[in-house]
Amino acid sequence: GEDLPLPPGWSVDWTMRGRKYYIDHNTNTTHWSHPLESGPSSG
Rank of each mutant, 00 (worst) to 15 (best):
G1L: 11
G1S: 13
G1F: 11
G1K: 12
G1E: 12
G1C: 15
G1Q: 11
G1W: 10
G1I: 12
G1A: 12
E2K: 11
E2G: 10
E2Y: 10
E2A: 11
E2M: 10
D3F: 09
D3Y: 09
D3S: 10
D3L: 09
D3K: 08
D3I: 10
D3W: 09
D3R: 09
D3A: 09
D3M: 09
D3C: 15
L4F: 09
L4G: 09
L4W: 11
L4N: 09
L4C: 11
L4A: 10
L4I: 10
L4T: 10
L4E: 15
L4Q: 09
L4R: 10
L4Y: 09
L4P: 15
L4M: 10
P5M: 08
P5W: 10
P5I: 07
P5D: 15
L6A: 01
L6V: 05
L6P: 15
L6K: 06
L6Y: 03
L6S: 01
L6E: 15
L6W: 00
L6G: 00
L6D: 15
P7F: 01
P7N: 00
P7L: 03
P7Y: 00
P7A: 02
P8H: 07
P8W: 07
P8M: 08
P8L: 08
P8Q: 08
P8F: 08
P8A: 10
P8I: 07
P8G: 05
P8Y: 08
G9K: 03
G9W: 06
G9R: 02
G9M: 03
G9E: 01
G9Q: 02
G9N: 07
G9I: 01
G9C: 14
W10I: 00
W10Y: 01
W10G: 00
W10K: 01
W10H: 00
W10T: 00
W10E: 00
S11T: 13
S11A: 08
S11I: 05
S11C: 15
S11R: 05
S11F: 05
S11W: 02
S11H: 05
S11Q: 06
S11P: 01
S11E: 09
S11Y: 04
V12M: 10
V12T: 07
V12K: 05
V12C: 14
V12Q: 07
V12Y: 10
V12A: 07
V12S: 06
V12F: 13
D13C: 15
D13H: 15
D13S: 14
D13R: 15
D13I: 08
W14G: 04
W14M: 08
W14K: 08
W14I: 10
W14H: 09
W14V: 12
W14F: 14
W14L: 07
W14E: 06
W14T: 09
W14Y: 15
T15N: 08
T15H: 04
T15R: 02
T15P: 04
T15D: 15
T15G: 04
M16Q: 14
M16N: 14
M16I: 14
M16P: 15
M16R: 15
M16C: 15
M16S: 15
M16E: 15
M16G: 12
M16F: 14
R17F: 14
R17C: 15
R17P: 05
R17W: 15
R17N: 15
R17K: 14
R17L: 14
G18Q: 04
G18V: 03
G18W: 06
G18E: 01
G18K: 04
G18R: 04
G18L: 05
G18C: 08
G18N: 04
G18D: 02
G18I: 04
G18H: 04
G18T: 02
R19K: 10
R19N: 08
R19S: 06
R19C: 15
R19I: 14
R19L: 09
R19E: 14
R19H: 14
R19M: 09
R19Y: 11
R19P: 00
K20G: 02
K20P: 09
K20Y: 03
K20D: 00
K20F: 04
K20E: 04
K20W: 04
K20S: 02
Y21R: 05
Y21M: 06
Y21K: 04
Y21Q: 02
Y21G: 01
Y21H: 01
Y21I: 08
Y22P: 00
Y22M: 00
Y22H: 00
Y22N: 01
I23G: 00
I23T: 07
I23H: 05
I23E: 01
I23K: 05
I23C: 03
I23Q: 03
I23F: 07
I23A: 00
I23L: 06
I23R: 08
I23P: 00
D24M: 01
D24R: 02
D24H: 05
D24L: 03
D24Y: 02
D24S: 02
D24E: 02
D24F: 03
D24K: 03
D24G: 01
D24A: 02
D24W: 03
D24N: 10
H25K: 06
H25N: 08
H25E: 06
H25P: 02
H25I: 05
H25T: 07
H25R: 06
N26A: 07
N26L: 07
N26H: 07
N26T: 09
N26R: 06
N26E: 06
N26Q: 06
N26I: 08
N26V: 07
T27A: 04
T27K: 05
T27V: 00
T27W: 03
T27D: 04
T27P: 01
T27H: 04
T27Y: 03
N28C: 15
N28D: 07
N28I: 02
N28T: 04
N28M: 08
N28A: 07
N28L: 05
N28P: 02
N28Y: 05
T29N: 02
T29A: 03
T29P: 00
T29L: 05
T29V: 05
T29M: 07
T29W: 02
T29G: 02
T29F: 03
T29K: 06
T29S: 07
T29Q: 07
T30D: 03
T30N: 08
T30Q: 08
T30Y: 15
T30P: 04
T30E: 07
T30W: 15
T30S: 08
T30I: 15
T30R: 14
H31W: 11
H31K: 04
H31I: 03
H31N: 03
H31L: 04
H31Q: 08
H31P: 00
W32T: 04
W32I: 03
W32S: 04
W32H: 03
W32N: 03
W32E: 03
W32P: 02
W32Y: 06
W32K: 03
W32A: 03
S33R: 15
S33K: 14
S33D: 09
S33P: 02
S33G: 08
S33F: 14
S33Y: 13
S33M: 11
S33L: 13
H34V: 05
H34Q: 03
H34F: 06
H34G: 03
H34D: 01
H34W: 06
P35D: 04
P35H: 02
P35E: 03
P35I: 02
P35K: 03
P35F: 03
P35T: 03
P35A: 02
P35N: 02
P35G: 02
L36V: 06
L36M: 10
L36Q: 06
L36F: 10
L36W: 09
L36D: 06
L36A: 09
L36H: 07
L36S: 09
L36I: 06
L36P: 05
E37R: 12
E37W: 13
E37G: 12
E37M: 14
E37T: 10
E37F: 11
E37P: 07
E37S: 14
E37I: 13
E37H: 10
S38D: 10
S38G: 11
S38K: 14
S38H: 11
S38P: 11
S38I: 12
S38L: 12
S38E: 11
S38V: 13
S38M: 13
S38F: 11
G39D: 11
G39P: 14
G39V: 13
G39L: 13
G39T: 12
G39I: 11
G39M: 12
G39H: 12
G39S: 12
P40N: 12
P40K: 12
P40G: 13
P40E: 10
P40S: 13
P40V: 12
P40W: 12
P40I: 12
P40C: 15
P40Q: 12
S41A: 13
S41N: 10
S41Y: 07
S41D: 11
S41E: 10
S41G: 13
S41I: 11
S41C: 14
S41W: 08
S41R: 09
S42Q: 13
S42D: 13
S42M: 13
S42K: 14
S42R: 11
S42T: 13
S42A: 14
S42V: 13
S42E: 13
S42I: 12
S42G: 14
G43L: 13
G43A: 12
G43H: 11
G43N: 12
G43R: 10
G43Q: 12
G43V: 12
G43D: 11
G43M: 12
G43Y: 12
G43P: 12
G43I: 11
G43K: 12
G43E: 12
G43F: 13
